[in-house]
């Protein structure tokens, strides 16, 4: 097949469709840069969506748990090797993604006889102030977008993600409280999971809140917090919904 370029292109296109189909229904994850730190949130089954990577780095993702685990381990190995051979301060998300994870994901995606990674990821690096907070939206094929500051959603389908992202950016403007931001994340999560529109006939606030509260009865909220104010080297802290007062 590889000696026939058109069939190879077709195979890659089919692969892309296959991954998108498999990811449908995946529970979206979120991250936001706030004055005191970076908040990451996902709804899963406990330690399945939001993870600590290194002192100032965290990851949230959706997809197949085994694939998320492989990428998480690759990121952990690379970060700790870098910190040990150089210094913890040299671990950077830009290098981790662009010279490590992205290349490995692209190679895997284009090897059409092996199983593709079923993942969509959001990675965060805490800066000295919110404008220096770095986010990477990393896709299953290794492509990625870079952002500084702001709030981001990572969903399974690109069209709904971009509508949700626009709504999230507008709604979150001026909000700096962790609890408030977490509530908005959960509203977006509920709207995405139930296929609600972000442009027309958007559910009102009370409908959104009662919606996510009802859905959370059978699930758990996973929250990661990268603390900008602490004097500890390790900035990551895992929080419970109760700690945020949700």
């Amino acid at each position: 097949m590889t000696e026939e370029p058109y069939r190879w292109l077709e195979a890659v296109a089919n692969r892309r469709d296959y991954v998108r189909e498999q990811l449908k229904g995946g529970s979206p994850v979120f991250a936001a840069s706030l004055p005191d730190g970076i908040l990451l949130l996902g709804v899963g089954s406990g330690q399945s969506k939001v993870f600590e990577i290194f002192d100032r780095h965290a990851m949230a993702g959706l997809g197949h748990p085994a694939d998320i685990e492989k990428i998480r381990q690759a990121a952990l190995d690379a970060a700790h090797m870098e910190a040990f051979t150089r210094a913890p301060e040299d671990v950077s998300l830009r290098r981790l993604v662009s010279f490590g994870l992205s290349g490995q994901l692209k190679t895997n995606f284009e090897q059409i006889f092996s199983a593709p990674f079923l993942i969509e990821l959001l990675l965060a690096e805490l800066g000295i102030d919110p404008s220096k907070d770095l986010f990477f939206r990393l896709h299953f094929d290794g492509s990625f977008q870079t952002h500084f500051g702001g709030a981001y959603v990572c969903a399974s389908q690109m069209d709904t993600e971009s509508a949700a992202q626009k709504w999230l950016t507008e709604t979150i403007k001026g909000k700096t409280d962790r609890k408030q931001v977490a509530q908005i994340f959960l509203e977006v999560w509920w709207m995405l999971m139930h296929g609600k529109s972000f442009t027309t006939s958007t559910p009102n606030e009370s409908e959104r809140e009662s919606g996510w509260r009802a859905d959370l009865n059978e699930k758990s909220v996973e929250i990661g917090w990268l603390d900008r104010k602490t004097s500890r080297l390790i900035r990551y802290e895992s929080l419970t919904a109760e700690q945020l007062g949700l």
């Binding site: 492989k70 990428i71 381990q73 690759a74 190995d77 700790h80 090797m81 895997n108």
Partner: peptide, 16 residues
């Protein structure tokens, strides 16, 4: 992305 020779969670085996 997984190394078969790596002992889970053991940084010294990763160094090796």
């Amino acid at each position: 992305m997984n190394n078969a020779n790596l002992i889970a969670g053991d940084f010294l085996s990763l160094l090796a």
